[in-house]
């Protein structure tokens, strides 16, 4: 159900259901607000259905397909009436786009509904660039940033250039590419607590690459990876700050960076 161009140009704009994602909802609402701002700036009507919880990926990736299907059905119903479903995470949106149709391989009715949701579901930054062709409102972030390509977004959804394209329009921002930016940071959902030592080894490599990029800020498109990277940076006492790219693009970096002490936004 891709919108025709004429409908996109209507003043009301497409109706987007924001899939907040459970991590953003709980740990970093600022990313949710940033996503809303970016979508509204780009001319979308944004709604946030209150029935949403999680995409079900933890159940699916741990092999509990039945539970994953129950959660998926709830998401499919909740987001049935939107033109688009957009979320600030490559990982969760890949679950909606790629895993849901697969989950209902043997169920014709739900497979069709899953396919319908899949076709309308997008990760935030790829939605802004690939679907809307939007230029975000000017934001500024003076600093040398580096970007971690989260795996699901990169390999399942082909997200690579989109965030870079958007970030290149941020005033004062210099992008220093991260060595091995496409290598997993070791988060991997429940992997990071099931295999903490291996996960730590992987995130330590990531942190070493952040240091050699001489970046003062790490950005990414998935809060899970960012919590992991920020957590390790902080534990090692490294100064680099960590934000979701949406926060930078929306100019919403006045609050404390991920894992940093509370800071009230400055009154302007």
């Amino acid at each position: 159900m891709v919108q025709s161009e004429t409908k996109l140009r209507k003043s009301k704009g497409p109706h987007v259901g924001l899939f907040v994602t459970c991590l953003v909802d709980l740990f970093r609402p600022n990313i949710g607000f940033a996503a809303v701002k970016l979508l509204q700036d780009a001319g979308c009507r944004v709604s946030v259905p209150a029935q949403q919880v999680c995409c079900g990926q933890p159940a699916y990736n741990n092999g509990d397909d039945a539970a994953a299907r129950r959660i998926a059905k709830q998401v499919i119903e909740t987001f049935a009436d939107f033109d688009y479903v957009v979320g600030p995470s490559g990982s969760c949106m890949a679950t909606l786009r790629k895993d849901y149709p697969e989950m209902f391989e043997d169920d014709a009715k739900w497979r069709e509904r899953a396919a319908d949701l899949s076709a309308r579901s997008f990760e935030l930054m790829s939605f802004l660039t690939d679907i809307l062709g939007a230029r975000p409102m000017p934001a500024s972030y003076p600093g040398r940033v580096t970007y971690h390509d989260s795996c699901s977004g990169l390999r399942k959804l082909g997200i690579k250039d989109q965030p870079r394209q958007l970030l290149s329009q941020v005033e004062g921002l210099t992008l220093a590419e991260l060595q091995d930016s496409e290598t997993c940071c070791g988060f991997g959902g429940t992997f990071c607590v099931k295999y903490p030592e291996i996960s730590t080894h992987m995130v330590s490599d990531k942190v070493a690459n952040v240091e050699s990029a001489e970046a003062d800020t790490v950005l990414g498109g998935d809060l899970g990876c960012l919590l992991n990277i920020a957590g390790r940076l902080k534990r090692l006492g490294k100064p680099a700050r960590v934000f979701h790219a949406a926060e930078v693009l929306a100019g919403m970096t006045d609050l404390a960076a991920i894992g940093e002490p509370d800071r009230k936004p400055e009154k302007k």
Partner: peptide, 12 residues
């Protein structure tokens, strides 16, 4: 499993 080697960022 997490905090053995990483700080856990506090929610907002």
């Amino acid at each position: 499993g997490w905090t053995g080697s990483r700080d856990f960022p506090a929610p907002q």
